[in-house]
Amino acid sequence: MIATTRRVLSCAVLAAFALPGIMGTAHGATLDDVRAADELKCGINTGLAGFANTDDAGNWVGFDVDYCKALAAAVLGDASKIQYVSLTGKNRFPALQAGEIEVLARNTTWTFSRDVDLGLTFVGVNYYDGQGFLGPKSLGVSSATELDGASVCIQTGTTTELNLADFFRTHNMAYEPVPIETNSEARAAYEADRCDVYTSDASGLAATKATFDNPDDHMVLPEIISKEPLGPVVRQGDDQWADITRWVLNALISAEELGVTQANVEALAQKDGGSDNPEVQRLLGSEGSMGAMLGLDADWAARAIMAVGNYSEIFERHLGPDTRLGLERGLNALYSAGGILYSPPFR
């Protein structure tokens, strides 16, 4: 019920939401806005285990949340100065366009039309994903190509919706789409058997499955039907802010590559007795003036890593094999470890 009310609210405000913001005069430099408010407004999802959901104490935790924290630490020097804004698939872009948030970290796929046509800028990829199907084992389906005639739950306003139409059309299969607004409602509809399978990003399916009473009664079908590079998004038109958000992400990835961790970052950042690797020195600000080039101070990246650790630490904490999601690094391993995760150099 709470989820439903939330969805209703989010729907109702869609128009009301988009217009006043759009009507407001053009945005100034985002960095100045964030500093003036002394708070980062970060758009996250409405609740998805591992990526962004609330813990027992009511605090937001997760993979996407940690990106918000790293950014706030880099820009404001405090990872807790964040206002989290929960957004559905549908209202996330209007919220960003209207200036309700400064950055969107919500399992959002980088696509041509979003990047080019919607007035958005994708600053990188923090999770390489693909769309899959989740179904009960009792359905007796072992491949998505057997789904002719099935009812399929989908989240509206997503790339998922479009891939699904393409997949069934190219395979000449019929299906009943059951459009749902948020992950928690899709889960409820799936559990009430309104649909046979639920389709979404494979990582999201793993997260959803992990929260079932009997996760082992369900399985993710082997087919991955699309490419879903997920990453942070900002409004188009503020290059400085786009650079900051892009390089905070790159800093987390480079930190893994360079062996900088939450535990050793402070030591490595020392001017004397710290790291003698020049790239580490540039990254952590003991050498060069990269921070100043971004409009930040010298230890912006060191602070981000201190707040949440490097990419690997973030992944293992929220998504990795030791969590209930149990996801392998796969494509998201460093390029040097068999994956495709690759940060441009800090030079």
């Binding site: 729907c11 128009a15 988009a18 698939g89 549908k90 039309s113 046509d117 509206t156 306003g157 919706e161």
Partner: peptide
């Protein structure tokens, strides 16, 4: 209708808005 996913004009319009970004036109 949109709360339960009945695909009326608003529900479909929202999807169109989201996929195309044409806020004012859709409204």
């Amino acid at each position: 209708a949109v709360v339960i996913g009945y695909q009326d004009i608003v529900s479909i319009g929202e999807t169109v808005l989201n996929q195309s970004g044409q806020a004012l036109e859709v409204i």
